[in-house]
């Protein structure tokens, strides 16, 4: 069970907002984390604490395919992103790099600064003060296998070792 403070962002948060291209001359997670969400909220990287949760609108992570985006969010300490929907490349990338994400159409009702409890196993989301509960869309079984393996690379290694 995760618990963290909500940072809220709107619809169509593109990967240029998550990590501007001017910082893509490195792929060092710690350095990327320092500029995470910089053009959407320059104060974010300074305020976010390990375990915090991003809540966003539709089409989160649209635009460029840069995997630096989920890497930066994860390295900034964010425990989970809950959005109305995700852009498809970001969706794949998040699973591949081990950043937990959940799709939940109703999540927009949650206020910035509130505390959320998230159960990744069953997709239950609860507001700590207030008690409202939300149910995220179930994670497809194949993605669960990737998570269980510890990411895509360990999954592929296991598959190659198994001769499948």
């Amino acid at each position: 069970m995760l618990e963290g403070t909500v940072f809220k962002f709107g619809d169509n948060i593109d990967t240029d907002l998550i990590i501007p291209a001017r910082y893509l001359n490195t792929c060092d997670p710690a350095e990327l984390a320092r500029h995470c969400m910089e053009d959407a909220d320059p104060t974010f990287a300074g305020r976010v604490k390990p375990g915090d949760i991003i809540v966003a609108g539709a089409n989160f992570g649209c635009g460029s395919s840069r995997e630096h985006a989920p890497v930066a969010i994860k390295a900034a300490g964010v425990a989970c992103v809950v959005a109305k929907s995700f852009a498809r490349i970001f969706y794949r990338n998040a699973f591949n790099v081990g950043l937990p994400i959940l799709e939940c159409a109703e999540i927009w009702g949650v206020a910035a600064g509130s505390r959320l409890q998230v159960d990744l196993a069953n997709g239950r989301i609860k507001v700590v003060d207030g008690g409202q509960e939300y149910q995220a869309r179930p994670v497809p079984p194949f993605m669960q296998e990737i998570i269980a393996a510890g990411g895509l690379i360990p999954y592929v290694k296991a598959r190659l070792a198994g001769g499948r």
């Binding site: 395919s65 995997e67 490349i89 990338n93 591949n96 790099v97 895509l152 690379i153």
Partner: peptide
Amino acid sequence: TGVGSTDLAA
């Protein structure tokens, strides 16, 4: 279609 770097590696 576009994918991420880890997808490409796999």
